[in-house]
Design a protein around this nucleic acid. Structure first.
Lengths: 255, 255
DNA sequence: GGTTTAAATGCCTTTTTCTGCATCTTTCAT
DNA sequence: ATGAAAGATGCAGAAAAAGGCATTTAAACC
């Protein structure tokens, strides 16, 4: 740790200290720096200007941010794609020839559909146009799309017709992409999506919840189901990971 | 760290956190962000506006959506895209507020869906996952997907269930993408697709056939309908073009 | 060491930015 | 169709940035 002495620092020293602080905290306020370094905010501002000009930091109103903190302009790719690929690999191990599988939408599900091996002979029921297309690329997969009104927000089909159609199905597996997950269970923020997911759970022998660990311990407005309704929880983490401890015993299997 | 440490965040930081939240949940409500980030909804709204302007997110009434809903194949590299855009422009002139429209799949239809002006209030019934997604981008369009088995080949839903569902609809307009077209009428090579298209024609007051001129004078194995069942023929050519002469009088309107 | 010179710093004033509030309009769901 | 929720807009106070100016400081030169 850098001890701040009352001694006066040279300009160069001070700027090094500023960079140090930013690397440490990813951000820093001009006012804090002024206090720490015992110079006026004007001086700090001038320092930050110089450092920004040298591309050492990112200057923002009120202070500065670390360069690494700043997201690249092109974040086009799916968020956390690597994590989702790990999840897909684990998920696919649960799928056996001849199964009937009910699935929702979401980018995690898309990764699963994408990674699916071509030799699997299974039937998928889905409410997501995107997933249906991804699945339809696999020659031995039968894809049934459960039609209905397409929600502008969630891009899956919703409404009474879908729900009643789901009720007529008896699936081996239900694979859910998750938005909110905590000790209380699965939650979501879209009323119509919740209705669909609830129906899917009810119509399946086993339920698999898939989510990247970041979504653990988040609670959204509407409840989809409780933890005891879930058979498998799949994240990109190893089952022994600390973050999964709270769910031990509450969910049958954690993969 | 995504953990909110200090109460006060810099504006840029806050916006990064917003993007993070959206990537995590695919969508987010302004009110939730206001709570999470401890600022007024006005500020959130301004942030969302900025981020939308930078094309980082998609803003909707009440919150924002993740931008990553794009389907792999981008529009621009579809075959004969320019021609299809011309067709789309002509086609869209036939659409009036309040209409119910029945559509098949195909890249021409996709161009139409893409070019659709945002102020149109119409209801689309479609059997194509791709078209449904494209249409769902338009806030004032209601999209109903007619579910069923997704054909691996044509990537639209087919089968008895779809056909009987179509029979229950009464649409103002049927917009067909065409594969084969000659003096005998419309033809196609996939049996299941033909069944669906036949049903669509039967359920619509008016039928619009759209095709690039390349497909004119081609005959495929299976007949979909004869020319007198078609109300409009739309190609990228001017109606006076030599290639369209053979169809004068056989089709009501050539655009 | 003393003087010169340029850089660095602090202070002040003027702009700009940010944010919340109030008001009015638009949109949405019932 | 109508009431409620969300959005847009203008305003004001607070905070931060920018630029000019004067003073101090550090270094360079003799």
């Amino acid at each position: 740790m850098s001890v701040i002495e009352s001694k006066i620092l040279l300009k160069k020293e001070r700027q090094l200290e500023i960079i140090h602080q930013i690397n440490l905290h990813n951000k820093i306020l001009s006012s804090d720096l002024s206090l720490i370094l015992n110079v006026s905010e004007d001086t700090i501002r001038r320092d930050l200007n110089e450092l920004a000009l040298e591309n050492k930091i990112v200057k923002v109103h009120g202070g500065a941010l670390s360069k690494s903190y700043n997201v690249s302009a092109t974040q086009a790719d799916t968020y956390a794609y690597d994590e989702k690929k790990v999840i897909a690999t684990k998920m696919i191990k649960l799928i056996k020839d001849g199964m009937t599988i009910l699935t929702s939408g979401g980018t995690t599900m898309r990764a699963i559909a994408n990674q699916l091996p071509n030799n699997l002979h299974v039937t998928f029921f889905t409410v997501s146009p995107l997933i249906s297309l991804e699945l339809a690329e696999h020659p031995n997969v039968e894809v049934i799309f459960l039609g209905g009104k397409i929600s502008n927000i969630s891009k899956i089909s919703v409404g009474g017709e879908v729900v009643s159609k789901i009720n007529d199905i008896k699936a081996d597996l239900c694979v859910l992409g998750i938005n909110g997950f905590d000790q209380e269970g699965i939650s979501d923020s879209d009323y119509e999506v919740v209705q669909v997911k609830k129906a899917m759970i009810k119509s399946s022998r086993q339920v698999v919840a898939t989510t990247i660990s970041e979504k653990l311990n988040s609670d959204l407005r509407l409840r989809v189901c409780t933890l005891n309704e879930i058979d498998y929880l799949i994240t990109e983490l190893s089952p022994e990971n600390e973050l999964l401890k709270p769910y031990k015993g509450l969910v049958k299997y954690i993969l």
